[in-house]
Design a protein around this nucleic acid. Sequence first.
RNA 1: GGUCGGGUGGCCGAGAGGCGAGGCAAGGGACUGCAAAUCCCUCUACACGGGUUCAAAUCCCGUCCCGACCUCCA
Length: 467
Amino acid sequence: MSALNLYDTATRQVGKFTPIKSGEVSIYVCGATVQASPHIGHIRSAINFDTLRRWLIKSGYNVTFIRNVTDIDDKILQKAAQEKTPWWALAMKYEREFTAAFDAVNVRPPTYEPRATGHITAMVELMQILIDNGSAYAPGNGDVYLEVRTVKRYLTLSGQRIDDLLPATDDDLATSKKRDPRDFALWKSAKPGEPSWPTPWGAGRPGWHLECSAMAHAYLGESFDIHGGGLDLIFPHHENEIAQSEAAGYGFAKRWLHNAWVTQSGEKMSKSLGNSLLVAVILQRVRGIELRWYLGSAHYRSMLEYSESALDESAIAFRRIESFLKRSAETLGKIPDSVVSDSFAAAMNDDLAVPAGLATISENLRLGNQGITDADTAAISKNASEIRGALEILGCDPFDSHFAGSARSDLTAAMDGVIKLALAERASARDRKDFAASDAIRDGLLALGITIEDTAQGPRWSIMEKS
RNA sequence: GGUCGGGUGGCCGAGAGGCGAGGCAAGGGACUGCAAAUCCCUCUACACGGGUUCAAAUCCCGUCCCGACCUCCA
């Protein structure tokens, strides 16, 4: 099998992936700030990194996957005040929504999912190191800032120069205790009524960036293999994580991966633009497995332009594949094995080139369907197995127990018996060329959501998917 | 202003010096009582203008257009 090559935002090049420790991969992904319901952009990010994780595991690595939850920040406090609910209740409510959304699209739970508020001690320790070595300062008002000009390398990920940055506008420079307007808050002093935790520099709460440095260090150590997140996190969030962590003497992330947006009319989906499509709403249109297929089918670094018709077409394409697999299982009398083909592996090893991988699935699908027509068991088995192997990596294996649903096999068997009675009636009508009667039976079943197809092996029924 | 992406056929979407990924749609055909499903065949491209090269969608220069980030963001 060829070796895995991955893009690195820091070098803007695809290069051979070599883990720090042979056979082990450590990943930190910036997860949700739980201040609103998840939209499909959030879920796309999670799917991209879940696919990476699955591929690493399939490639034989032992993967430690950390994805955090930011459960305290300005917006959470703001929204909690608006809704007159405790901030922690609001955060937990949305955290559960994110968990449910991840689950619906078969994103595996991370190895550990740390919350910011559970790691205050680690953050205070990190701030102490930074203050002791002169990288950070506490001006006495309860805030703690990182002094960016003391950092040896700053803005290496986004390729900017510190003097090119537009000066902060949201900061009241006249009253700010910052030494430089580009310095950023590690810790924010508590305003009256706000939650706070005690520190040697005053009571307050974490700045956004500090938590990730502290939690990555807590679970993955001073250096780890991959740090991921959305494109918009490159600056400031990831630059600031690097600044803090490197100033503390940590090696930090060896490679940076960033996923692109889901867009609408070319524009990024975001709550502030009011164009976000909530996962819960989309799931009324297509099944979770279909949403995953749609969101996971684009290359992770390419924008994915959302449209209803693209989603529908994608779902239909997926059902073709699914239908072939189910038919294969019927023909073979067992669920096909899961095999990763060389061509799919080569695609995945090339910076997770999922679209190239989909081309190999198309080829398998064509040959497999041919196999069904020709009753060529070997061809069916080979192609069904290779499709299943690919779908497993993409998190879209219809035989995955995650998607098996609640269909009870005894109910299915009973239904099969009932439908076969109807099909027997239809067969005898067809025998006496009473096509009006036979079509009435087929149409009647169709009205109930059951499709009948006549195959070389006789009629076959299936339940129609929604939409 | 700085930094970073992008513009490919009717649509979606890869590729990154040579032999036109793939899918959807469309047209034709096979199979079928009809349908559905499936298979086979066919068609249509690289924003624009220069340049480099035996050869450019791909490299270089310029232009136009779209988007992202610059302290809320997946």
